[in-house]
Write a protein that binds this DNA or RNA. Structure first.
Lengths: 185, 185
DNA sequence: TACAAAATGTTAGAGCCTAACATTCGATGT
DNA sequence: ACATCGAATGTTAGGCTCTAACATTTTGTA
């Protein structure tokens, strides 16, 4: 009796198979059928676990974590400082082992046109949380949306660059993105 | 003897039919076959003019214009000021008639999950031009990518918001995005 | 063991997109 | 006007993504 359900294990096998296959052959050259087969299930089961082919690679367990961390910052902080603090805190909690997994996924994403284009969709929840954090500190609706979008875009760009390098601390990528937004001219 | 070729007219009819149909029924509920039929051609002809279903709505004639305007700014300007000036100059050249068309397209985009997610792909050229402009003014490679991504994201978010409103000058949306980036600390 | 729920499989089909080949249309020179 | 050559479009065929409805197996638990 395993502590995780059967569904969770199937899900994990699908992600593992997908990243492995795509790292070798590229996302567009690997069909859902092959990913499912490599994971020992049917194409149908794949789509019961992931809404789209992209999502098996894009789905990031850390995104909601980031959203929570940003939302949890004290109300006393200025708007953008709260966002920065939340991002730093969230990424500080990612250990080296997990960072390696993140990097594998980001490399597959960076190599695929379609996946890069689909990234905003997967970070929508984080963007929403950032926008909320800004709004609750007095930033107007529209400005909050714009600032949140810019923050996420900077973070995404920094992480994609980071994934291409070796032996670079994950924190550096985050700091670089925050530095740009913080007034890097 | 029309001044534009037959292919260009077919292309225009496809865009017109696509925006019209999608405005009424939503992007996901309109098939490529129906768009083609409404334009009086075959599905095959659609794909000879546009690489994907998304591109018929996303394809923006102003994107390269913006890229040129940013690249054309004098080298003497500071990096981010050059980007801002380029963006202002480009959008100032869009007349009311054209702005209306832009808005129709943006409304269709704003209403569709898939189209919003696919936007970065369509603005890649503009992002590249902005990154180049920054690089040629001494910003390092990675920082240029990040700043460009943030700029485009802010601009896109502002334009999508603008499209939802009525009788708002297009310039206001641009100014709002630039304002965020210009004093974001 | 027996049962209910969860997980997976099967089948069918619409829609996106590509490739190879055939056909029609349109601009150009005479 | 006419012929011609290339551009534009149509036809057919097929693989891939994704959904829906229904059947089957597996799992956890009484």
């Amino acid at each position: 009796m395993s502590r995780v359900g059967k569904a969770q294990r199937t899900r994990d096998r699908l992600v593992l198979a997908a990243v492995e296959l795509c790292a070798g052959e590229g996302f567009e050259n690997v069909s859902v059928g092959r990913i499912a087969q490599a994971a020992g299930v049917t194409e149908m089961t794949f789509y019961r676990n992931f809404p789209t082919k992209e999502s098996v690679v894009l789905d990031d367990p850390f995104d909601p974590m980031i959203a929570d961390a940003v939302a949890a910052q004290p109300r006393s902080l200025p708007a953008l400082a709260a966002v920065a603090a939340g991002l730093r805190h969230a990424w500080a909690g990612v250990d080296d082992r997990a960072a390696e997994t993140v990097r594998d996924r980001l490399r597959v994403i960076a190599a695929s046109h379609r996946l890069r284009a689909a990234m905003p969709q997967s970070t929508a929840a984080t963007a929403q949380a950032i926008a909320d954090a800004l709004r609750s500190r007095g930033v107007t609706d529209v400005d909050a949306e714009i600032a949140a979008a810019a923050t996420i875009a900077a973070l995404t760009a920094a992480l994609l660059e980071w994934a291409q390098l070796d032996d670079q601390p994950l924190g550096d990528a985050v700091e670089r993105a925050l530095g740009i937004l913080d007034g890097a001219r």
